[in-house]
Amino acid sequence: MKKKVMIINKVISKNNLKKDNNNYIVELENVSEEFNMGSSVINALDNVSLKIKRGEFLSIIGTSGSGKSTLLNVVGGLLKPTIGKVIVEGIDISTYSDNEMANYRKNMVGFVFQSFNLIPTLTALENVEYPMIFSGISRAERLNRSEEILEKLGLHDRLKHNPTELSGGEQQRVSIARAIINEPEIILADEPTGNLDSKTGKGIMDVLKTINEEMGRTLIVVTHDIYISYYSDRRVYLSDGEIEKIEEVKV
């Protein structure tokens, strides 16, 4: 597996140069996220401050309802904080317009979901190609790049298959390919192994880990599974929307 990802590294990692002027790629400053549930207000995030290093593998651990997915969506630009700043590469993205947010999601982040979220009517290849459509990349290049990545991820014989014809592990690898195809700085994974058996889940974590290590991508994984967090550099414990503790993971 390692060898395979090293080849990916060579192929697609073009802007791998670390920007050393700022050690932190993401800084959350006093971020609160409130939802209205009927008449009551729920604090999904309550005054969270967190700094994430460039190239770091961060895991966020918490029970369901702890606000961990909300945190991921805030960093991923799917959700704007009610209060606070989300500074990515020195820019507060909470002030972005809808269009700027779309651009941010297109260029800066890649999502990996628990339920894969592949488009069922498209083949594996087309699913990976999809984000590049919105970047205006030519079709030939899109298909080339998608094919290459899928091959590196061991899916060379699954290119023309629809998601329903793929196993869970295969679907998740397609979804990882889609997340990294636009070469984003940050990869966000929400319970990436949640729908997989432990053996397949381990394989997926290996792929994510290598992408983090070999390509130097910042990786944030949300999980309720303490075992997953052993892959990461740091783990953040989240409870009721607040950071309980942050600890380094000792190998």
């Binding site: 799917l78 779309a102 999601r105 488009i119 919105f134």
Partner: peptide, 12 residues
């Protein structure tokens, strides 16, 4: 939702 997550803008 997926389209938006992978970077499609509202106008797309």
């Amino acid at each position: 939702g997926i389209m938006k997550a992978v970077g499609a803008s509202n106008s797309d």
